[in-house]
Design a protein around this nucleic acid. Structure first.
Lengths: 240, 240
DNA sequence: CCCCGCCTGTACCCTAGCGTACCGACGGTT
DNA sequence: AACCGTCGGTACGCTAGGGTACAGGCGGGG
């Protein structure tokens, strides 16, 4: 059913570590399956594990009230879940919801803390990741405010496609509406517009990305911004 | 002209350090005057100093385009400017604009880095501050999206009042419009609504807060949320 | 004392998106 | 084969806020 573009089953952060540190980290990770819809943590929860998604991915969602929800970040194989741990805190500020089922590596908080102390490479890398996330958060605030639903939807689909490592996604309009903080009917219109332009095809919760380049054009610049930022700060980093 | 509520001329972060560390940090700080409107750094700039505002305060602004600007954070005596430095990076992601003139302590990047290495208390404290900021950023994204201009304006005035240590503020509608990412005319309406309820008084750029409690009620919960978060994570922290 | 520039009030039409609701259609289950 | 729950298309009135433009008033500088 899935048509993986490339699903290397690695986590890019861990993969970027120097050999010695990577081996050490991997030795203390366990692999877990994350089922779609699973809530890994809720606001205020004590964080139990640091997660490094492989082919799963996770949405981070603010929940001001029942009607005021907004996805503010997405974590896939390019990232890590459990940012506060990098800062020495173990309180989850956001709702972490598994949005793409699959596997992830994880590590208990205490073990993670030890690795963080012992590996300056890990620390430097995660600091950089944190910087990227912060910068992206500021961008999300502005993007959500200024850009239209159709462009935001396009952006969101692209982000999801990257993390799903597939051009087939399973997403109802209802779900998308929650992520973007808009009406379900608003998604329907935006999705129809994208479909009529031949950029996507969808049918009862199955969305297929047909024209990636076109989607990028239909999206606001924020998608490209995010990617560029990640590449510049993480991928091209000369981590010692 | 100013009617300071209490302007202790200290920075709360530095003030929270253990005696030994505080003395050490203060010894390496210089005091500078920040003039209203001064741009301390622009996106992409290399950061030169870490700033700890005393009675000045600074707006952090995203600048997607000429028409798409939004203030995403505010730094006064409760905080620090130069977050990336905490993460070992020296790139400024945002426009830092002096919004309330006054004084600040500052320290060159290299010196700051040394202190950060040497003082685990400083590191822990700034990590906590960073956590607060991140959490607030997620809140800003949702608040900006869901809440109305009037409530957001009320929130913004309260935040400014706190950092100005005064109930008299100097702000044109034009400026407020830029901060909140809305039309100038939108601010005029919202401000008139607040004034007609007796919460503020304003006249050609001079805004006086008359009823703080009332303003809090008129604002969205986000103001109280921010304060509570700061208190919980920073003020009540048992930093070693 | 006058002028001019800045700040604000206001007005007009326009659009995006909200809230809500209803209905049809698809498809898995029994 | 019938059923029913899920998903998506559509519609209607409504509101917040955008874009723009103009006019009036305050107040500092000449």
């Amino acid at each position: 059913m899935n048509s993986p573009i490339h699903s290397p089953l690695t986590n890019h952060l861990i993969d970027s570590l120097p050999h010695r540190d990577r081996v050490s980290v991997l030795a203390d990770c366990e692999t877990v399956d994350l089922a779609f819809g699973k809530v890994i943590s809720e606001p205020g929860d004590q964080i139990q594990h640091a997660y490094f998604p492989l082919d799963s991915f996770i949405s981070l969602i603010t929940n001001l009230s029942d009607t005021e929800r907004l996805e503010v970040a997405m974590v896939g194989s390019e990232g890590m879940l459990g940012i506060p741990l990098i800062l020495g805190l173990d309180e989850s500020p956001l709702l972490a919801l598994v949005q793409g089922e699959g596997t992830a590596l994880r590590m208990p908080v205490a073990v993670f803390g030890r690795h963080l102390e012992q590996s300056s490479a890990l620390q430097a890398l995660l600091n950089r990741y944190l910087y990227v996330l912060m910068h992206q958060l500021t961008r999300v605030a502005a993007c959500t405010h200024f850009h239209q639903v159709e462009a935001r939807l396009a952006r969101w689909l692209l982000m999801t496609q990257d993390r799903a490592h597939s051009d087939q996604l399973h997403l109802t309009h209802e779900f998308l509406a929650m992520m973007l903080g808009v009406r379900r009917a608003g998604i329907t219109l935006a999705a129809m517009a994208l479909q009529s332009r031949g950029l996507i095809r969808y049918h009862r919760g199955d969305i297929t990305v047909l024209d990636r380049e076109g989607l990028i054009e239909a999206s606001c610049g924020c998608y490209s911004f995010d990617r560029g930022l990640y590449r510049r700060i993480i991928t091209e980093a000369d981590v010692p």
